[in-house]
Design a binder for these strands. Sequence first.
DNA 1: ACTATTTTGTACTGGATCGAATAAAACATC
DNA 2: GATGTTTTATTCGATCCAGTACAAAATAGT
Lengths: 202, 202
Amino acid sequence: MERKRGRPRKYDPEIALDAALTLFWTRGYAATTLDALSEATGMQRPSLYAAFGDKSELFAQALGRFQQRMSQTLGAVLEQDPLDTALAELLVGVVDVYAPGDEPARGCFVFSVAALEAVEHPTTRAAVAKVVDALDERLRRRFERAVSAGELPAHCDVLTLARLSSAAVHSISLRARSGSSRRALRAFARASAAMLLSAARA
Amino acid sequence: MERKRGRPRKYDPEIALDAALTLFWTRGYAATTLDALSEATGMQRPSLYAAFGDKSELFAQALGRFQQRMSQTLGAVLEQDPLDTALAELLVGVVDVYAPGDEPARGCFVFSVAALEAVEHPTTRAAVAKVVDALDERLRRRFERAVSAGELPAHCDVLTLARLSSAAVHSISLRARSGSSRRALRAFARASAAMLLSAARA
DNA sequence: ACTATTTTGTACTGGATCGAATAAAACATC
DNA sequence: GATGTTTTATTCGATCCAGTACAAAATAGT
């Protein structure tokens, strides 16, 4: 891996993109200024443009990064056995992402921030829909696997079960952003998992 | 009711506030300019300030108006009997509010638009939390009434049932804003109501 | 008519914002 | 060391934005 030709970069594109993601995540698209992005990333404005394009392109790339990371993390958790712990840990796991620390929680980047832009920007709308659908699909496949494994009865409505489990995730995002405590969120996550599975076995 | 002293208003404050609400609802707080608000309401900028205060105060009043209207509408639907139709009509009813027509659906004003501001504006955060909690509470009381009426078994977890029903509402808001069809939303609403009640009776 | 009062309509201001243009800096290669 | 290339750093310009000042307009009371 050879060194490139010109003046070396001062920034790491990955770290800078994470910083941009964090800023968009808290303030939303419109309220995030290029000056703030420049300061947060440590990059000057022309460097931002050279690396990521304009503001909307940077936002799109931040979204892609969030989605990719989320998909990997949650995918691994969900493939655990047995089903009951997989679902419970999925829901409790999103609490850690949506409400990580003490500062005001931000919820989900896609469901809370990108969704706002969905009305007027069809591209973002499609991206949000894709994330929503992907979670539904992943959950549905996991539930179908559970049916095959005899963990769930054959007659159960796996599609609705998946969508309602997604709904719990959506709700955790909203509740986190509205200030619910981590403790309350975890309690909701666990109780939801239990009730969803009891519904599946009814 | 006597006429007032000076030059008569050209606008109806209620209608103007509705127009402002609509605009905030589609664009979000930051992306909604006073020029756009002025045009949508038919009021000149100084009239806007005189009637509603500055931009953030106008937003707060729009939120209050949405909340009040929503509360009335849904409250009536939920007090129906029996429980099964009350819950189903509640969820199907929110579809009509969140995805009314053909143009890009906007979801819930509080859950999608106000929630974005929740991180940096504690007042808005509290307002969002209040709406979330109010829906939880209303549902919980309705389920407790159903237990008293013998529609649900006494042992069932009404609190989680209520929160999970709220979650379905939150999810419908998100799915609407992400472009899901009214048909798909209604199907999800009905299937969710059925599954939640089967869980309650498990 | 005249005055007081309320609202409207126009114009303005200070500041923020996005994107670009330009020049200096730091490196590899020849 | 000279040259070419890539990035950084500064600066600029055109636009947009929120909030306000001020005068004209439209009504009720006297």
